[in-house]
């Protein structure tokens, strides 16, 4: 049975806190979650025995590419400019213990 504890475990995996930023009350997001998951149980009625899952409706997809390096001057620097924190050319985060 889904409850706040299981919602908490899922939130942990997703790196999210269980707060509702509109009201800052904890109930909402958990209740919604339980209710939504409950609705998904309708799938139990679908006859899927032996049915091959369809993950992506790709038709005539691109073949693998050639192993040829491409140089795009300035691109790396432009990407680095967006970093919230940098040390030299490194992206920086709090020390991992």
């Amino acid at each position: 049975m889904l409850d706040e504890k299981s919602a908490k475990a899922v939130a942990e995996l997703a790196r999210l806190e269980l707060v509702d930023s509109d009201s800052h009350s904890r109930g909402n997001i958990v209740d919604d979650f339980v209710k939504i998951v409950g609705y998904m149980d309708i799938l139990a009625h679908a006859q899927t025995e032996g049915v091959d899952p369809l993950y992506c409706p790709i038709i005539e997809a691109q073949p693998p590419r050639a192993d040829e390096p491409k140089s795009r001057p300035g691109l790396a620097d432009k990407i680095l400019e967006e970093a919230p924190e940098r040390v030299g050319r490194f992206f920086a985060v709090p020390r991992i213990v």
């Binding site: 998904m40 799938l43 139990a44 679908a46 006859q47 899927t48 049915v51 091959d52 899952p53 369809l54 993950y55 409706p57």
Partner: peptide, 10 residues
């Protein structure tokens, strides 16, 4: 299960 249902819908 949802991916299987997706096949049925397709």
């Amino acid at each position: 299960k949802a991916a299987q249902v997706r096949r049925l819908i397709a």
